[in-house]
Amino acid sequence: MIWTVGDSRVGKSTVIKLLIEIYQKQNKKVRVYDHDNRDRLLAYKDLVCIEKIDFFNKETDRIFVELVADDIDIILVDMPGQYTDKICQYIIHSELLAGLAEYGWNLTFLQPISHRTDCIDYLNQIIQTAGNNANYVVVKNYHFTPEFREYDQKMRPNLLIVGGTEIELTALHRNHYQAMEKAGIPYSEVKDEKSIILFWRSFIFQWIKRFRNSVMSNNLAIKYLGLD
């Protein structure tokens, strides 16, 4: 089970979509729960089962039912940004970690980060709550900054202590990203989308490829994200 957590508008839904396509290539059976009301995952509804959910209104029992299903390899949960306090409270009160362990599931927190110090605070809260009972994958989103000096100095050592790892999402020009999102199709289909300039499509294709390479060249990320 993989939860995206952290700040708002740092690329959580973007990373979810990129991962869905990697899972598709590996024929993984994926279920997605979307806590966001902005329908950012709508373009993928024909590729995977996507359901709306509200973790804070006692709608989560059906997720625990999925833990005993034979037809699911990966459960992706796109959590809302800036709700780390509530997320941590839910983890504790629902005894989530013990429940997952009972059914043989692992939990991975997937957190894209930007230049904002809030990202460090949110990650620290999650680690303090779950400790060594969960896995952690930080996504350095270079759209926001060319370097992560404060994170590298203040947070990275703590991440490594609990066995966490990092992957990279390289920068994509804002115009290219907006054109890709406006197309309303899975990212992998953008290469054939004639409404987008061919030159832009080539940059988007390389952006997708670099993310996949970052994931698949990292053995811990492969393990924590349930990949082969």
Rank of each mutant, 00 (worst) to 15 (best):
D118N: 14
R156A: 14
K154P: 00
L110Q: 07
I126L: 13
E147F: 09
K154M: 15
G164V: 05
S114V: 04
M155V: 03
T117F: 08
P112R: 06
I120L: 13
I126T: 13
P157F: 09
R156V: 00
T117P: 02
G164C: 02
A134T: 06
C119T: 10
E150L: 12
R149H: 11
E166N: 02
Q153L: 14
L123K: 01
P146F: 06
Q128T: 02
N135G: 03
Y142D: 10
I127F: 01
A130T: 11
T117M: 07
V138R: 02
I113E: 05
G164R: 04
I161R: 11
V138A: 08
I167R: 03
Q125H: 10
P157K: 10
P112M: 07
I161V: 13
Y122L: 10
T165V: 09
Y151W: 13
E150G: 00
F148R: 04
P157S: 12
I127W: 01
P146D: 15
N158C: 02
V138C: 09
C119D: 15
A130H: 00
R156H: 14
T129N: 01
E166C: 04
I113Q: 07
V138W: 04
G131K: 04
C119A: 11
G164A: 03
D118L: 12
L123P: 00
V139D: 08
C119Y: 06
V139H: 09
C119K: 01
D121K: 14
L169V: 09
I126F: 07
E166A: 05
K140S: 05
Y142C: 10
Q128C: 02
R156I: 00
T129W: 05
L159Q: 05
N132W: 01
I127N: 04
G131P: 03
C119G: 14
D118T: 15
M155K: 10
T117C: 00
A171K: 15
N133I: 00
D121T: 13
I113P: 01
L159M: 09
Q125D: 14
L160F: 13
R149T: 15
Y151M: 02
H143T: 02
N158L: 15
I120K: 08
Y151A: 05
V162Y: 13
L160Q: 13
L169G: 11
A130G: 02
E168T: 11
Q128A: 08
L159V: 12
V139N: 09
N124L: 08
